[in-house]
Write a protein that binds this DNA or RNA. Structure first.
Lengths: 314, 314
DNA sequence: TCACCGATGTTCGATTTCAAGGAACTCGAG
DNA sequence: CTCGAGTTCCTTGAAATCGAACATCGGTGA
């Protein structure tokens, strides 16, 4: 069975019409060229070159084989080019993103990524961070935009991506009632947060406990949109990333509540397995970080709430 | 630089998700598989497989490379198939044909050849036999349909193809004059034949000499069509393959002259260089011979001339 | 016409390189 | 601790390459 060396020898002898010239081209001796061509002919079982001709010429079959040989050599060179060009990637990137990001700067990011890597295929999965981490560990995903929370033992690279300020929001009527009520009114009101396994939920519980609210009623839902919808309907106080509800606040559907102590922000990283093409993933992470920064700048912070004991809406 | 063995190892380990399974598939040991993958990774300078995963999985770059590797292996198999399938040929056949054949059964032959070898590319050259033989010797042509006449030293295969009966034809008025004249009238009339270097010309000279006509006037032209045209115009007696002037005779433009002794027939062979893919060329020759036989059957012989001393037209 | 020379490809033997097998080792999971 | 799977190491045989010698062909000059 022939190898690339035999193909190279054949192709160059045909192109240059001479064993000697082919040998010089490939920096080997003439007997070696002769050997390679003979080996190739032995492996296919037919003569491919007419040596009596001057210049040396392919046989009919040799001419047919030549186009295949050229194509194979070009294919090998093309494959080698994958590793020499840091600036392109033509494979598939399986990306896991938490919903907050999917709802904020991710569309912009995807557009820029496609411009940057035109041959790239993206598979996007949206889920909460713990599930995303599990999938990274199981090698179902290549890269995450999520909160930290690595599965123990997984060797991965992690780089800060963005921070989202969290806020509490209520429908105007509920907000008015809370403004006229006291701490007990606040404590009796239902809260609406993400899935129980998600970090926002546990951070909310801790925050309310620190306020003295030991048994809060918290509805948990799986999507940011549902939280927003329920909050607008007046079912409770939604705890959401501030930037993601700017439109609803501007429309008057929701009002932000002023808190004595700010909620802890949600911090997100870009995370990928160490074994996975580090420079490409680092490049993707940089691009994502830029998109996040642009988004934060465009959407800014909602007006700074004045500090009052307890809570106050804006 | 990697070879096909390394590509095979990589592709099968990825497909089967296991070094051990890949080794079993390729009938080698596990350390050998490990070596091949390592050699491949060393040659490209990057890790292509994540060995900590179960099953073993390609890295991002590995996945990108996989499609190339598969394509290269398929390309090699495709090239090998050229030598295992006697029934197809996808290259270029450079065919040299004498004009008589080009004007008779060659169009039919070309059609059948294209049906038989759909991927074949044909380059057709029409010339007289000596020139065609020269070009075969210079490797400008792969195969001839011509009279024998090999350039000395050229190692070639030759197989009988067809025979064309030769006849003498004249315009009706000239034919009438010849019928009323005698041998001197015939000897004084100009003859029209092919190029001086062509066999028909020298055969005509020999024929007339045997008739006692030592210094015949013979016009020589390079094409069969020109001979026919000049004969129809009454410029002389055209010496042509009988089958090729059937239409002109049927139309009354030309009349066949009856001869005491028949002209020697023109015998044509299929000829190709021994080094050139013998089975394919033999197959082409068989197909050509069949077309020639079909043509001879369809066109038959013109009516047998009755024998008279000297000459007589039909 | 013949002998000689130069160019080119092939063959042969020696040397070097490479690939594969088998044994031992390492690592992770149960 | 055991087992399954992959890696490392050493030995051996096969394969590739080199250099020298040989063979062939075409051109040139006497």
């Amino acid at each position: 069975m022939f190898d690339f060396k035999e193909l190279e020898a054949f192709v160059w002898v045909v192109r240059l019409g001479s064993f000697r010239k082919g040998a010089t081209k490939l920096h080997i001796t003439q007997p070696s060229i002769s050997d390679r061509i003979t080996r190739l002919e032995d492996s296919v079982g037919e003569s491919l070159l007419d040596r009596s001709a001057r210049p040396v010429q392919p046989t009919l079959r040799g001419r047919e084989f030549f186009t295949h040989a050229e194509r194979l050599l070009e294919g090998r060179d093309e494959a080698m080019r994958l590793f020499q060009d840091e600036e392109s990637f033509s494979g598939t990137l399986r990306l896991g993103v938490i919903e907050t990001i999917a709802s904020s700067w991710c569309p912009t990011f995807m557009r820029r990524l496609a411009e940057r890597y035109p041959q790239l295929t993206i598979e996007l999965m949206v889920d909460i961070s713990p599930f995303l981490h599990q999938r990274l560990a199981e090698n179902d995903l290549d890269m995450l935009f999520a909160m930290d929370g690595l599965v123990p033992g997984l060797c991965a690279i992690q780089t800060p991506l963005c921070t989202f300020e969290m806020g509490m929001f209520a429908a105007p009527e509920l907000a008015a009632a809370l403004r006229q009520g006291d701490m007990a009114t606040f404590a009796d009101t239902a809260f609406i947060s993400f899935s129980k396994q998600a970090r926002p939920y546990s951070e909310l519980v801790a925050y309310l406990t620190a306020l003295g609210i030991d048994t809060p009623r918290i509805h948990s839902t799986s999507t940011l949109m549902t939280i927003m919808r329920m909050s607008i309907e007046g079912l409770g106080i939604g705890v959401l990333p501030v930037a993601t509800v700017r439109d609803a606040v501007d429309a008057g559907s929701l009002e932000r509540l002023t808190l004595e102590e700010p909620l802890p922000p949600m911090i997100y990283d870009a995370i990928w397995r160490r074994s996975n093409y580090p420079s490409f993933c680092a490049s993707v992470a940089r691009l994502a970080k830029q998109c996040a920064a642009d988004y934060a700048q465009d959407h800014g912070k909602l007006s700074s709430p004045s500090t009052m004991k307890g809570y106050v809406d804006t």
